[in-house]
Design a protein around this nucleic acid. Structure first.
Length: 477
DNA sequence: AAAAAAT
């Protein structure tokens, strides 16, 4: 087996690796390090969890160590672009850890924080700059930073950048880079747009490295699916936490509001939890992550902001409170556990209307996930059973077929109750009951009011309606 | 359809 000591890395790097207890490179590291050290471009098809960050950080640091020169003012010798602030922070920390005996300088630049500190950090130049695209472009356009003198450019998680609409900003950033440079390009998948981008960014004939972590990481994760009614998910989640092995748990929700709600729900039953999502301030995001890492809270409730890349030690369980709309996200989410050789478990909740998503996930991952039916558990959500019959005024409008959606006993949603469930699942059309029908006269009256009074205590829409316009990606829809 | 990222 290849050892780090066989790769010809500079002594101070080997020392830092030994400090951390690393002796053997992962496959992507063994394949990528020699070529990148020699100055070649790299196209890496790899997800996080493969040791990707070290695969580029180590050879880059080696090159910096071999060729000492002052970093250009207001600029950097190495630029790394990352899709999220958390991942950028983490990459910066890796460079600092591996480069600790080299005396190299690292700066991280992203939005949500003041400009002054970032400008001061860059004033005299840094060796390594890690940035998210938006704020970096801002600095470039304001000329408070330049990219002249960048020797190596790293684009991490390119496919996630695409999903987040960063392709245009990236093209703009690349225009600020010197023509002659080394490029390292990483993506978990290769959709056509990303393929095209590789052609624009990379020099001809790059070293290609492809590693699929599924076989190695995902295999060690103990996965299961629990079928449960949507309105009893919170009770089931609380029950899971009765098990002391649920020490350090990431709970994924589909929406930002959902993350807040689930975190509050856990707090209500005495389980310390913190929520993290893109609507939280940068300070809140950092505090939540720090509290979770320190073990001050057992649960980190997160949107897919934390699905990729985030590397937290000893996450015992990943719970998917809702299944993701994009099947690939399932794999990213569960990959937050069982890291660095540890064990880990992944539990996914699946409500009746999520069966289709589960099918997609099983197709994409080419696996059958063991499932358990936790619907109609008597001890769960007792309050729900005690729900009063809806009063006359709250009764839903009679629908065409004359069936006023039966099965009132369990919760008021009426989703999928129409058919008695048998052992196996038949795909059912599951039409959208609440869609307003043309020709209905009443202005969102009784039926809607009833919708607002949910078993979980959710009272009506508390979302402030924001005016759509503004910035963002609205135009495309 | 939602989330992330620049304000």
């Amino acid at each position: 087996m290849t050892q780090f000591t066989d790769l010809g890395l500079a002594k101070p790097l080997l020392k830092a690796l030994a400090d951390e207890g690393y002796t053997q490179p992962t496959p992507i590291q063994a394949q990528a390090i020699p070529g990148v050290m020699a100055g070649r471009d790299l196209l890496g098809i790899a997800q996080t969890g493969t040791g990707k960050t070290a695969a580029f950080a180590l050879p880059i640091l080696h090159r910096l160590a071999e060729d000492r020169r002052p970093a250009p003012r207001r600029s950097a010798r190495v630029l790394v672009l990352s899709p999220t602030r958390e991942l950028a922070t983490q990459i910066g920390e890796s460079f600092k850890a591996y480069g600790r005996h080299l005396g190299i300088s690292v700066a991280v630049v992203f939005g949500g924080v003041k400009y002054g500190g970032q400008m001061r950090a860059l004033a005299g130049g840094v060796d390594v700059l890690v940035a998210t695209p938006g704020r970096l472009l801002d600095h470039l356009q304001e000329k408070s930073m330049t990219l002249e003198g960048v020797e190596t450019f790293v684009l991490d998680e390119a496919d996630q950048m695409l999903d987040m609409g960063f392709i245009v900003p990236i093209r703009r950033i690349v225009k600020f880079l010197p023509k002659r440079r080394q490029n390292l390009f990483f993506s978990a998948t290769m959709p056509a747009e990303i393929e095209a981008l590789t052609g624009e960014i990379l020099n001809p004939n790059p070293l290609k490295v492809s590693v699929t972590p599924q076989a190695t990481t995902v295999e060690r994760i103990n996965q299961k699916v629990l079928f449960v009614e949507q309105q009893r998910k919170r009770a089931l989640l609380a029950e899971l936490f009765d098990d002391a092995s649920f020490k350090r748990v990431i709970v994924f929700t589909r929406t930002k509001r959902g993350a807040d709600r689930v975190a509050r729900g856990l707090e209500q039953v005495g389980i310390d939890a913190a929520a993290i999502h893109g609507d939280k301030s940068q300070g809140q995001r950092e505090r939540a992550l720090a509290a979770f890492k320190a073990g001050d809270v057992r649960a980190l409730v997160a949107t897919d902001i934390a699905a990729r890349g985030i590397d937290i030690d000893a996450v015992s369980h990943v719970v998917q409170f809702e299944l993701p709309n994009v099947p690939e996200a399932y794999v990213h989410r569960i990959g937050r556990t069982a890291r660095a050789g540890a064990d880990g478990s992944a539990v996914a909740f699946c409500a009746d209307d999520e069966r289709g998503l589960l099918k997609d996930i099983e197709k994409v991952t080419r696996q059958r996930i063991p499932s358990f039916d936790r619907r109609n558990d008597r001890h769960l959500g007792a309050a729900t059973a005690a729900m009063p019959e809806p009063t006359r005024a709250e009764r839903p409008e009679r629908t065409q077929g004359g069936r006023p959606q039966g099965g009132r006993a369990q919760g008021s949603r009426g989703q999928g109750q129409a058919q008695p469930h048998r052992g196996e699942h038949k795909p059912k059309p599951n039409r959208n009951h609440s869609a307003p029908k043309p020709g209905h006269r009443h202005e969102g009256g009784p039926a809607r009011a009833a919708e607002g009074q949910k078993a979980d205590g959710y009272r009506g829409p508390r979302r402030r309606r924001r005016r759509g316009a503004g910035g963002g990606q609205g135009a495309s829809a």
